[in-house]
Amino acid sequence: MIKIKYEQLSALIDFLTESYQVYAPVKHGKETAFKKISSASEINKSKYNTSLNPKDIFFPQSEVMFTYTKNGIKSPPEQGKPIAVWGLRTCDTKSIRMLDKVFANAYQMPDKEMYKDPYWIARYKNCLLFSFACNEPPSTCFCNWFNSGPYDSSDSDIFVTDTGDEYLLEGISERGIKFLAGYPETSQADQTDLDKIKVLREKAESYMPPVVELSGLKDKLLKIWDDPVWDELSAKCINCGACAYICPTCHCFDMRDEGNEDKGKRVRLWDCCMYQLFTKEASGHNPRELSTYRVRQRVMHKYNYFVENYQQFLCTGCGRCIKVCPVNMDIRQIIQKILTYKEV
């Protein structure tokens, strides 16, 4: 584990930018978001997670898939340097790993080129994720429901603890260890630093809500799939889709053409299963006509379907959906209600 003082951060970022496109949390209007930076001065230091999710780095809200003219189709330019992300929280690092499972291939399918998403892979390939311990998780956090916690370093390339005046950097993945070995600053963390981490960690964990046991959630959901309880659970929802757009793990998208027959482009855009049009067919038939069905779909996808396919929940407990919901729907309450519900 090496340590760098706050004032040495700019040297680290400069070093990173030599071989990486560096993304970090910055102020973005009223929000905080991950954007490409060229120096450490742009970084928004905060003890909290960014208000917008980081999936945009690897899976942009809108991106050109190809352009076309009368002469044919042209792919977008190559990505260039690999991506490094500074300032992720552990939950967000996990969300990126989850999305990689979706885009890298398709579950249960043979490892075949046709199932790979070249746009995701071009950005994700060789990426370096610095994830930060959360010293003061806010009240909307519930990552500890998912066998994780504010000091969960798994899935990180490099795990960073902010002690108040310095950063302690621990290489976790092979790529992370290799990077740190090649970094000129070699000031090693000592016992005092480890003691500091211990104190910070205990304090951080004390902020977390009591753990809710989720091992029965997947099966319970399938059991109540057809139950009228969904009417009650979804009654408040206005299908605005804010939860899906703010979610770091939602990966649904649309593909649209912009242009005319001579020239234009095909773009992909985040989309959302909360919208009626998401599944509506040209014939008028809509398999998810009612809001109830759509709310159920989102909950089922995250806590049953994805688990079936990838053996983990498609939720990190980051709490963003709780913060943005205009009608105060709270996924934690929905989960708890489902767990304790006696089916009809």
């Binding site: 398709a106 199932y115 990966h251 998208f253 599944t279």
Partner: peptide, 23 residues
């Protein structure tokens, strides 16, 4: 049939249960 879009199990449109109609 559903409104399959990406065709390779990513865009989420054609889900039925944990399956995607497109793959």
């Amino acid at each position: 049939e559903r409104r399959m879009k990406c065709g390779i199990g990513k865009c989420g449109r054609c889900g039925i249960g944990s399956k995607y109609i497109c793959i």
